[in-house]
Design a protein around this nucleic acid. Structure first.
Lengths: 249, 249
DNA sequence: AAGTGGTCTAGACCACGGC
DNA sequence: CCGTGGTCTAGACCACTTG
């Protein structure tokens, strides 16, 4: 059955099913789930869906928007709307302090970084407090988009005292590897995890829709001496990550 | 300055600032942040905002929708749009296995449950596998909306083998208290945490907008013997929860 | 140049809440 | 009853991608 036939309104678009944009979204979801619209395939143009279903384009757009927000469909201006290949989810431990690079390597995935900021900066007040510095101190800051297997996975922004990471440019892939070599590898960390809707600029970098769910993680890590070594704020793609924790009484 | 004056387009609505719905959203956010639109106060009606700003109502709605999705504004049909009181966030440990009820009690918050399902049911295939049961076995199932301080916080759906919780109706507040009395309190659990956009029916129960970010948690907990005691799937409000984990090398 | 998604408008009617 | 948000339409123009 062709996609066009599948979308003809007879049989599924009616009174009882709630708003029409919800019914259309459901119909499209069914088509994707059934394999009629396989990954990478394109949806009919919005105007064409509107004509087939006898809905207005605004209503069609609203239905598709929800699919985009939920990560099932990707829209490219000037090009079309496409069914997304479902991302293979990655699990990350919340009990063991691991490095992103090493973690991915153990899964056989290559990691790359797209640098957004890497250098020495004046510490922000928040950083002064968290790292136990003095006002006016400088810090090393590393801000990057982390990719694994060619896919953007997370935004990461780490700040460290300058004596722990004197030369941030040295960090090419693994921050923890550099710290290790300098004898400054953290041994303990506290992480705070929350869920947020990803804002436009971050969504762009991560390759997800604005408003998609993401995991915001704030990590403070410590040296054996108890001193704070690192303050990192990350934003992980919600569709790509599961965090796993082990709890005890 | 009145809200009406604040929204007059002169001075903030222009060419360079991107789409107009983005500019309007920004303007409204500023008004909320500045205290001009305090919590609980109502926004002007959509039609009025449209008139003041000289935008169409569709554009105004789009701007407000984004505020709703991000939890800053709440809309009540027939009534109006209101600035939300920011929720005080609650932190929950990811290292210690605690009970929701006891956890909240230690913060001085009363908890209540709205029951969605509580009784004995035929185990679903997924439950059979996770709990180590046989096909056709029955399970105790507890599905509820958990509230703390009068606010909905999380949806929780727990499944247990019948010999561990023979009489689910006994559970009035704390499941773990009941298990404790029966000598079946779990001592260890594995949790998988992910971020999702909350779908319509769940959003309704949790009092958040459809598409708002939520934390989905799947917990499998174990008795001292190593046997699986409980399989729980929860959905926490992203705007109300921070999970805190401690990591070690 | 043609086709696609992105933004925007003016106007209509419905559903719900409160007076 | 009236005012509110919720849904929907037909049509326009812009921005971008692709052949």
């Amino acid at each position: 059955m062709s996609v066009t036939d599948f979308l003809r309104p007879e049989g599924w678009l009616g009174e009882g099913g709630g708003p029409r944009y919800v019914q259309l979204r459901r119909r499209l979801e069914e088509g994707i789930a059934a394999g009629l619209l396989p990954p990478e395939s394109s949806l009919p143009p919005e105007r064409e869906i509107a004509e087939i279903t006898d809905l207005s384009r605004v209503t069609v757009r609203r239905a598709i928007q929800e699919l985009v927000r939920d990560g099932l469909v990707e829209q490219r201006q000037g090009s079309g709307s496409f069914v997304r290949d479902p991302v293979t989810r990655v699990e990350q431990s919340l009990s063991r302090l691991t490095s992103f690079t090493e973690d991915m390597a153990s899964r056989g995935m290559e990691t790359t970084s797209r640098w957004l900021e890497r250098g020495v900066f004046l510490a922000a007040p928040e950083e002064v407090a968290a790292l136990g510095l003095a006002d006016g101190d400088q810090v090393a800051r590393i801000h990057r988009l982390r990719e694994a297997g060619g896919r953007p996975m997370a935004l990461e922004r780490a700040t460290l005292p300058l004596d722990i990471l004197p030369n941030p440019i040295e960090v090419v892939t693994s921050l923890y590897a550099v710290l290790d070599r300098a004898g400054h590898r953290p041994v303990r960390a506290i992480q705070k995890i929350s869920a947020i809707n990803v804002a436009a600029p971050e969504a762009d970098l991560l390759g997800v829709a604005e408003g998609a769910a993401g995991l915001r993680i704030e990590r403070t890590s410590f040296l054996p001496s108890g001193r704070v070594a690192e303050l990192t704020r990350s934003l992980y793609r919600g569709d790509a990550y599961d965090f796993v924790a082990e709890l005890r009484l």
